[in-house]
Amino acid sequence: MKTDLVKSSQNLISGLILIAFAAIAVWSLSNLSQGTVTSIGPAMVPRTVALLIGLGGVVLVVLSLLHESEPLERWHVRGPVFVSLGLIAFALTIKVPGFLVAAPLSMMIAGWGSQDARLRELIIFSVVLTGFCILLFKVLLGQQLPILVIHSLSIRI
């Protein structure tokens, strides 16, 4: 991972991300007014902060060329990917057809984020936990939570 030019890949990447982040912020503020010191406009504070972040990013990049520090850690993709897929499934199904579908579906997808996942156990756990959540949040605590919504059958619980 070590080349002669870049001594700390972690700082280099951090710096570049921050510079990009600051640039996006500055660009998104481009049509807002800066104002004056007496009456500060909507863009002044965030723009100044964004510029400082960009500056800090540059410092990190420069440091990465000068000093060695910890190397970049390995990213594990499996967990984040499956959990994110689970979250997407939840977001897509929570309104229609509702929690009764969204919860077990998302849990059964996300469960594979662990390398030790076992199908049977995961199914049982998802079903039990779905029931528990409905009981706790909907029945006992009276939260507004669509449990089962199927328009064609006019079901709305």
């Binding site: 939840f90 996300a110 076992r118």
Partner: peptide, 15 residues
């Protein structure tokens, strides 16, 4: 076990 626990944590956060 954590392989099930994290699924529960996820669903609580979703809620």
């Amino acid at each position: 076990p954590y392989r099930l626990m994290f699924v529960g944590i996820m669903i609580f956060c979703c809620l």
